[in-house]
Amino acid sequence: MNTVKVDIEYCEICNSKPQCEELGKIIREMCPKADVVCHTGRRGSFEVKINSELVHSKLAGLAFPDYGDVVKNVKLAAEGKPVTKVKEQPITDCVIQ
């Protein structure tokens, strides 16, 4: 298993740090050899790179990544396999009655 570097850029203004920390925790639990770094970045961002390859961009898709799909890609990278674009979390409609 190769060590995998996961870089997560989040927007401090949007208060995305808790999501970054949650995703980092899940990755570390499922892939203990992963090196996960969360850092503040551009406004509206939640960008996920695995070994320098962008697999998710909230700036492009306006949604957070599917955490399970991120973990799947980290495991692929650890096995030396190519990573793919990560699915987005489903958008839920907020209904006020």
Rank of each mutant, 00 (worst) to 15 (best):
V6T: 08
D7G: 00
I8A: 07
Y10T: 06
C11V: 03
E12C: 00
C14F: 09
N15E: 10
K17P: 00
P18D: 01
P18H: 02
C20K: 09
C20H: 02
E22D: 15
L23G: 09
K25D: 10
M30G: 00
P32E: 08
K33N: 12
V36H: 03
C38E: 13
C38H: 06
T40E: 14
R43V: 14
F46H: 10
E47M: 11
V48R: 13
I50V: 15
S52Y: 04
S52V: 07
E53V: 15
V55I: 15
H56M: 11
H56G: 06
K58E: 02
K58R: 15
G61L: 13
L62Q: 15
A63F: 08
A63H: 12
F64S: 01
P65R: 04
D66W: 09
D66S: 12
Y67V: 04
D69G: 08
D69C: 07
V70A: 06
N73V: 07
N73H: 02
V74T: 05
K75N: 07
L76M: 14
A78Q: 12
G80C: 04
K87W: 13
E88Q: 07
D93F: 13
C94Q: 06
C94F: 15
C94S: 10
I96F: 12
I96P: 00
Q97Y: 04
